[in-house]
Simulated scan of single mutants.
Amino acid sequence: MLKIIWNKDDFERVKSKLDQEYHLYMTQDPNEVPVGKVGLILSEKNLHKLRPILEIIALEKTQVLLQTVSGWLQIHVQEIIYLEAFGDEIFMHTTTMSSQVIKQPLYQLEEILKPYHFARIGKSFIVNVSKIRYIRTAINAKLDLELINGTHLEVSRSFVKDFKNALGIQKRED
């Protein structure tokens, strides 16, 4: 048996995802874990489930440091919905604050955010894949994305294949 113990507030943010995907036994029993903590108990036959669980937990806590016009901003990657280049300015749209102007170029931001499930969808856009509500086909072999905040973005034709690969929905070519 393996126990994982972590902060109750952090746990609440990932609880539904863990319940739906992994059907795990979780406890707040004071005999099992300290007060204010939550425990996850896995049998040895389910140890293969541990890595994705830890990745989900780590993703919720991951922060990046980005340069803005007024200094440096530390932000949880899960708060970022998408980034948009408009002229020489990069706008970061988030779930928790108004848009921020970021001083780093889009290609650098793409490299920084790629490990955290972000994908380039056009010359001027990077999107957080976990913030997509719907994906619809559009005219001219493009895709229309509806994000959790109601924003619609278009995946340009030259980025559709890479975008589908990033999501794991690209059809195999014979």
Rank of each mutant, 00 (worst) to 15 (best):
D162F: 07
S156C: 10
R13F: 14
P52T: 14
Q67F: 10
F159A: 04
L106T: 08
E110N: 03
I169C: 06
P30M: 05
L147M: 12
L106K: 04
G71Q: 02
P105N: 05
V69H: 14
Q20S: 15
L66D: 10
V14H: 04
D10L: 08
W6Q: 14
E154K: 08
P52E: 12
P52Q: 12
A166W: 12
I112Q: 07
Q108K: 09
L143F: 08
V127S: 01
A119L: 07
H76R: 09
Q104G: 00
I41G: 01
I81K: 00
K45F: 05
D19Q: 15
E12K: 13
A166V: 13
E110F: 01
Y22V: 09
H48Y: 13
F163L: 00
S98H: 13
E84T: 00
S99E: 06
D162W: 01
L167R: 13
I135M: 01
R157C: 11
S99R: 10
I80K: 03
L18W: 13
A141S: 15
I121Q: 05
V14G: 07
K114V: 06
I139M: 02
E111L: 04
V160Y: 02
G168H: 04
D29G: 06
F163I: 06
G150E: 11
F118N: 09
V129T: 15
D174P: 11
F11V: 11
K61G: 07
F86K: 13
E12I: 12
S98I: 11
K49C: 06
V69A: 15
K164A: 09
F11R: 10
K131Y: 01
S16C: 12
I126V: 04
D19I: 14
V35W: 04
I4E: 01
D144L: 15
E55I: 13
Y25F: 14
L143N: 07
Y134H: 08
